[in-house]
Design a protein around this nucleic acid. Structure first.
Lengths: 127, 127
DNA sequence: GTCCCCCTTGGAGCGCGCTCGAAGTCAAAT
DNA sequence: ATTTGACTTCGAGCGCGCTCCAAGGGGGAC
């Protein structure tokens, strides 16, 4: 038995398809993993750690480009800790801003819901 | 002077390009507006009202397909008030769920920020 | 041997939501 | 009369993030 995880195992663990995992590698989000004696990819724990944070970044709206930038910093060693922190803090702020914007957008939607709930035929700007 | 707004005026008001406004019409989000004597589109207040809600729906992640469904209900008259309310309430819940998910995703990102801020070289799962 | 299944690569294709370009019409200004 | 400029239609093109396909290899079970 070889050490590490096959692409299928990582797919099961992360919920990403094998196709997507190879795509992430091509896109520079994931450093090319080692290979087993049969030439198949063998992923290790740190790959899983990277995928965990990448999926959170993606879920919060980070683009592939920005994720690549983060991944590049990670590959450049501990000297980039500060740059990574800054990058993540900027992203954090963007997410907070987006949550605030969503709340604002919800207000109009909720006023519309109220309008429909009241069956209010008075004028409230058509649709 | 003809009544209503030209496509350029609506573009200015909404921030959507004229191209996008025509696209929304093609896509069934906006009922075809009236035309001036020169054949140009003349938008009216209710079109602006529709665009206001559409932009909020879009900003909160609704797809064009779903917006078309809403627009179709709007075109079908007051009998669809209840259906529109249900549609908007379902969307509202999805947005609330998404906000909650974003908050959850932020937690991992923030733990990572903390890790980098402390320059903590102890093991905390690699990248 | 010969199934079967998982893996490999390279490259094409897709759905979304625009975005743009070409070619033409019309009205007002010069 | 010509130029300018805003509008019209139709259809193609684009960037993103996958998603899928074809063709092939390697290894275990029977």
């Amino acid at each position: 038995m070889e050490t590490g995880y096959t692409i299928a195992e990582v797919s099961d663990i992360t919920g990403l398809t094998a196709h997507t995992l190879r795509y992430y590698e091509r896109a520079g989000l994931l450093s090319p993993p080692g290979r087993g004696s049969n030439g198949h990819r063998r992923y290790v724990e740190s790959d899983l750690g990277m995928l965990r944070i990448l999926t959170r970044l993606k879920a919060t709206g980070m683009t592939i480009q920005e994720m690549r930038r983060y991944a590049e910093l990670c590959r450049s060693g501990a000297a980039t800790f500060e740059a990574r922190r800054v990058l993540l803090e900027e992203h954090r702020q963007q997410v907070l801003d987006r949550i605030a914007a969503l709340r604002g957008d919800l207000e109009l939607i909720e006023s519309k819901i109220k309008f429909y709930a009241e069956g209010d035929t008075r004028d409230l700007a058509g649709p």
